[in-house]
Nucleic acid binder design. Sequence first.
DNA 1: CACTTGACCTGTCCGC
DNA 2: TGCGGACAGGTCAAGT
Length: 301
Amino acid sequence: MPELPEVETIRAGLQRLLPGRIIDSIDFDWEKSFPNNTMAVEEYALKAKVTQVTRQGKVLLIELSTHYTFIIHLKMTGQLVFVPAPHSNVERQNSKFAGGHPNDSLIHVLPDKSTHVTITFTDGSKLFFNDQRKFGWVRLFPTAEIPNIDFFKTLGPDALSKDFTGAILFERLQSRKNTSIKAALLDQTVVAGIGNIYADESLWAAKIHPATTVKVLSWKQVTELYKVIIFILQLSLKKGGSTDKNYVDAEGNKGSFLQFAQVFRREGQKCPRCGSIIEKIRVAGRGTHICPTCQKIEDTE
DNA sequence: CACTTGACCTGTCCGC
DNA sequence: TGCGGACAGGTCAAGT
């Protein structure tokens, strides 16, 4: 369930840790976690240098000096954890890690049974792709061809980019006007980066019932929804994202945003705004958390 | 085309 | 204690 704040936190960590490193070898134990042509990997990934790490929505892009890029989707339980070389005192005594790497234990526990891809760099450091449920994947693509992939062609604006505004959200929602607002927010072709946690939190903050049909929402409501989406995503980014079960950042640290969540995973507790008991219902096939008092279905039909 | 549902997986929890 | 089944949720394929 890494969503935009989680993927961005990982990206920022990897951008500090990876550029300049040279890939020495790649191992994987599950074909679908690393669906790539062996020849292409040997020719364009091995001995390649990492140039930069970027992100589009929930997708991470590790760009290489060979003009190929690793496209990585973590789906629900994916992790990307960097571990310095076991005996690299230089790495482990730098300013941030003075006194030892904050997650020294990872050096000893990784790889584990959820590790499906391991990228080893020439300096002995490693990047582990762990994925308990095996839904995620690491794919190698020519960098120039990425914009032509269907997923990226249809991807909506990144929720934290300048291209995403209240007016744009309202406009893009018009293509999904007969579905629920929750389903529309989860649709990555409308806006990229929102998943179940931030959809529920945003709709609670905007006082909109998740099952509300998109077409009945007013301009004012959509504008308010836009504002709270940005606020919540930025707050989560500051807190290092949400750790429910599996999420950790590039160095194995958990995020603390769920401590600040108002409704997600809080069924049975009081709504912080009105005191009603938060309920868990099902909308768009997903577990959905609402305050039954603050979030009423609007019926203008 | 718009929209919904099931499949992909494994770990966990709940009821019997 | 063990076992079946529901559930967790991002995306795509297949269905209506």
